[in-house]
């Protein structure tokens, strides 16, 4: 059969695949997951950028029938599209935890997730533990962290401190983590990161009245939130998934109907129809996971949880 090439970029690798012309998004996605050995596939997606807007490859539609960039090979980013409510309960496989760790770390370093200087230092110390293992002053001599990107640029600029002073600060915490294995260190990182206000939120500029893009809409694992444009930390309003009846769009307008029929219907405009489609897609996916978490685990999940427990116990013994 005729094929076309795609390049898939994960948080730590690049892969090339030959796809059959008739393949749906799901065929490519499944192949990537199999190649990575990833079973917790429901958090992830294949992302691309078209005309400056982020989009996710649709699973049920043929790859070539989607509005993907015309390049050879076509590039996709394999990324977490949805986030768990509690990392420690939901992320079971080590590979899943590792991919989340790398993605969230990048978001924090790129300042897409705001984080106080104190917390960034603590997070950096867990990242160092994950990378270098236990601290050994004979081996980890001053300057050993110089090459590593560990703190957001904003934090580095905020203080009059040399790189060596930062290294000392991070190392003081790092030395405390002795005995923590790589996967544990990454999980500790995620447990702290998940409490940051901007973690796991997809933000979209919206306007309630035309010509005033004065608000932000945030979609996350718990629901939909509305923020002032200059405050991404605390929403003015929140709609939990369990309190929403219906979400719909028509062109650029989007409507959220609360379950409580007496409550006010929330209407707003996004920048383009494409964005509304993306918002609805994220709402459906997050709501689906929200329902799944509140049901009895499937046999597959039960097995994975048992396996993860065994694996953890085995590692602890080895360690």
């Amino acid at each position: 059969p005729k094929t076309f090439k795609v390049k898939v970029i994960t948080m730590d690798a690049e892969m090339e695949f030959s796809c059959e012309m008739k393949w749906k998004g799901k065929d490519l996605f499944d192949l990537v997951c199999r190649t990575l050995g990833l079973r917790e596939t429901w958090f992830f997606g294949l992302q691309y950028t078209i005309k400056g807007v982020c989009a996710w490859l649709k699973m049920e539609k043929k790859v070539l029938e989607q509005e993907i960039p015309k390049e050879d090979p076509t590039q996709f980013r394999f990324l977490a599209k949805f986030y768990p409510e509690k990392v420690e309960e939901e992320l079971l496989q080590e590979i899943t935890q590792h991919l989340f760790f790398l993605q969230v770390k990048k978001q924090i370093l790129d300042e897409e997730i705001h984080c106080s200087p104190e917390v960034t230092v603590l997070l950096a110390s867990y990242a160092v533990q994950a990378k270098y293992g236990d601290y050994d002053p004979n081996f980890h001599k001053p300057g050993f962290l110089i090459q590593d990107e560990l703190l957001p640029k904003r934090v580095l600029k905020q203080y009059q401190m040399t790189v060596h002073m930062w290294e000392e600060k991070i190392t003081a915490w790092y030395a405390e983590h002795r005995g923590i294995a790589r996967d544990e260190a990454e999980m500790n990182y995620l447990k702290i990161a998940q409490d940051l206000a901007m973690y796991g939120v997809n933000y979209f500029p919206i306007e309630q009245n035309k010509n005033h893009r004065d608000l932000l809409l945030g979609v996350d694992a718990k629901g939909i939130h509305v923020y002032s444009i200059n405050n991404r930390f605390s929403p003015n309003r929140s709609f939990e998934w369990s309190a929403i009846r219906n979400i719909s769009y028509s062109e650029k307008e989007l409507t959220i109907k609360p379950l409580d029929k007496k409550a006010e219907v929330f209407k707003f405009f996004s920048s383009q129809l494409k964005v509304n489609k993306l918002i609805l897609q994220l709402c459906i996916g997050n709501h689906d996971l929200f329902m799944k978490r509140r049901r009895v685990d499937s046999i597959e999940i039960q097995q994975m949880k048992a396996q993860a427990r065994e694996e953890k116990a085995r590692k602890k013994m080895e360690h």
């Binding site: 009846r245 219906n246 769009y249 028509s250 379950l259 489609k277 609805l280 459906i284 329902m291």
Partner: peptide
Amino acid sequence: YFARKANHKGSYSLVDALKSKV
């Protein structure tokens, strides 16, 4: 529970989605 009426319109009923999964 997800309906696309035309290419520029879409609707998702969370209530129906919940009912269908119970």
